[in-house]
């Protein structure tokens, strides 16, 4: 479903809407508080803040990887705080594409199989012909079609990153979440990676949420979530 249509169908123009979030790790002094957070459909949002301020925790909360202690989160129009763990997983694998800082490709799969990984592990998403064709066409668009038979160990850093982005896009998600995708890259590669993400988000009509600690990149985003603010994200 088109994300705009999906969100509108639920009476919302936001891909993510969070209110009164409270979260703490058991036995840890860390506390996360978010009063209000909204990311509209189609936005390019950055989440910024110093190390340890809770950027990754916020991403985990917003995508339903962990449940908050209190508060309400809506993802793609669904209140994930009211959903079971299984329902949150099912929603995440269908509607959210994740790109991790270390890419997290499985070294025993080929690049092609890594792209199709969400289909292999989802309960009711077979890796059918359409999915396979989409994987190939995204890889072609990302310029990594020639690497599809190779394993991650034989790919360059840039190729691995592109494969990770392909994996995030293959399910045609409404939201692409990237956890410090440029953390290990030089400025030129960082710029190329962001170009790629913006292009692909636009091409797939997806909302983009990028976690970064690089303030120099913020001009490129239309929304910034500042985790260093005293009251948490807003």
């Amino acid at each position: 479903m088109n994300p705009r249509a999906s969100a509108a169908a639920n009476g919302s123009d936001d891909v993510i809407a969070a209110h009164g979030l409270r979260f703490a790790y058991p036995g840890d002094g860390f506390r996360l508080r978010v009063e209000t957070l909204r990311i509209p459909v189609g936005a390019h949002a950055a989440c910024i803040g110093p190390s340890g301020c809770g950027k990754t925790t916020l991403i985990n909360l917003l995508t339903g990887i962990v449940a908050p202690d209190a508060g309400r989160i809506e993802l793609c129009g669904q209140a994930i705080t009211d959903l079971s763990e299984d329902a949150r997983r099912a929603l995440r694998i269908r509607r959210v594409g994740l790109v991790f800082q270390e890419f997290e490709l499985l070294d025993y799969l080929t690049a092609y199989e890594n792209i199709l990984l969400p289909y292999y592990v989802a309960a009711d998403m077979p890796a059918d012909g359409a999915a396979r064709e989409r994987a190939r066409s995204i890889a072609t668009a990302m310029g990594v079609a020639s690497t599809l038979r190779r394993r991650p160990g034989r790919l360059s850093q840039g190729e691995r990153q592109r494969i990770a982005v392909c994996r995030a896009l293959v399910t045609q998600p409404d939201l692409i979440v990237c956890d410090e995708p440029t953390g290990n890259l030089d400025p030129a590669s960082t710029a190329r990676t962001l170009d790629l993400l913006f292009e692909q988000a636009a091409a797939h009509d997806a909302t983009l949420l990028v976690v970064t600690h690089n303030h120099a990149l913020l001009d490129r985003f239309d929304r910034v979530i500042d985790m260093s603010a005293p009251e948490g994200a807003s």
Partner: peptide, 16 residues
Amino acid sequence: AREMQTLHRIGAGRFT
């Protein structure tokens, strides 16, 4: 553990 964490984060079923 890291591989399994990745599967969990992308949304693999609980018994995957």
